[in-house]
Design a binder for these strands. Structure first.
Lengths: 230, 230
DNA sequence: TCATGTGAACCGGTTCACAGCC
DNA sequence: GGCTGTGAACCGGTTCACATGA
């Protein structure tokens, strides 16, 4: 189908670490688990039951247990799961062994929102550089992140361990930005633009489509709310 | 689920034409189809094949055909699908028969980004009002949308056909905002906050969790890109 | 020939349900 | 008693593959 399946070069990935193959949805859940667990710990709690964590994240106890079983983390029937240990285990899987950072392209309202939000939270996976075309933004430091000119993109990325790019530019510019980011070594893109980016098969693209989300909400606001999810 | 349509005030909606039960993911796809079709038409094309539409949206031809079959839209083997007719059919399903609008709460960077983006595109499903606590924003008109004080929320929503609310406020304020919106008649929420909103079962909540999305991208940027999706 | 329409097989994630243990 | 660990059943969406028609 138009290229996607492609790769599958017959080679079964004997990938170094991470012997576990984690399904996409589960990565989302693990990420959510970790965040809630950090709050939990910050509130002084140390142990948690599957039904508690489930409630915190909007999932079922069975789902939580299944996930934790899959990542090989064991609790005890009497005391549930040990929170900090679980956080560590999840981090072990989700975080890169070597420091990995993010580049933000497009410092409009959306870009500023992201910078602003991530400067506060999110110690791991830092936004190392921002890029924009507007001269008045270039050289400034916004929320602790330096803003460079688009022309400097290749140079800056050459000095930073950036593996993820956020595309927060106008639609027309998206593909060009994606190409340059990938050329500069980025392997994953978070795309806020309503275009399907054309990328080589080894690059991962996640589309965040607010327009579609909004229409979905409008639709289910009328028809029976299929409860929530995600 | 399991057919039991919970609430459904006994009245089987004799809605003009929509006896179809549409799965969640399909609503997303239909929304995406429509947007691409509109571009397609804007470029002067009138007919489209399943594989073309599939490519435009990142899906397979089979998936497209199945979806169109499900919504009861028929094409011809020789000429594919008629674009404008298809747009209309999708609109018939997705859009409300009566004018329905959106309220935005929180006019920070994220709120501004949304206002800015939706004022340009999106004629149907307009953002009818914005709310914030910052005095300097109150009374101003941003991207064609008036910004009111939070205290005016109930009063303003009483005069507008708002069924959807966008929650773009700081985490701490989210639940309170959600409660008030729902109290004011909103039936669907688009939540940008990293909390699980507590809502009555008839209200639909869609969480857009940028932090989780970013971690997902970072993860798959390292491990094999499982192609794209969503 | 090439694309549509569609029953049927397929697939992978979710949920069930129960054994084991504290 | 309540909770974990987990094989097995379940379920719904996706994909296949082929009959059909221009």
């Amino acid at each position: 189908m138009t290229g996607s399946a492609t790769s599958s070069s017959a080679v079964e990935p004997v990938r170094t670490a991470a012997p576990i193959e984690i399904p996409v949805r589960m990565v989302e859940r693990l990420s959510a688990y970790r965040r809630q667990l950090r709050r939990w710990v910050a509130e002084g709690r140390t142990r948690i039951y599957s039904h508690e964590l489930g409630a915190l994240v909007g999932g079922t106890p069975a789902q939580v247990r299944r996930d934790l079983m899959t990542i090989g983390y064991t609790g005890s029937p009497a005391r549930g799961y040990e929170a900090t240990g679980l956080i560590e285990r999840i981090s072990q899987l989700l975080d890169a062994p070597t420091r990995q950072g993010v580049a933000l392209v497009g410092v409009g309202y959306l870009g500023r929102a992201i910078l602003n939000y991530f400067s506060k939270t999110h110690p791991d996976l830092p936004i190392l550089a921002a890029f924009d075309v507007a001269p008045e933004k270039i050289g400034r430091v916004l929320d602790g992140c330096r803003c460079y000119a688009m022309t400097e993109l290749e140079a800056v990325l050459g000095t930073q361990p950036v593996t993820v790019g956020i595309v927060a530019v106008p639609v027309e510019a998206a593909q060009g930005v994606a190409d340059r980011l990938i050329q500069a070594g980025v392997r994953g893109l978070l795309n806020f633009t309503p275009t399907r980016l054309r990328v080589p098969p080894e690059v991962y693209v996640e589309d965040v489509d607010i327009a579609v989300s909004l229409e979905k909400v409008a639709f289910f606001a009328r028809h029976g709310a299929g409860s929530d999810e995600e």
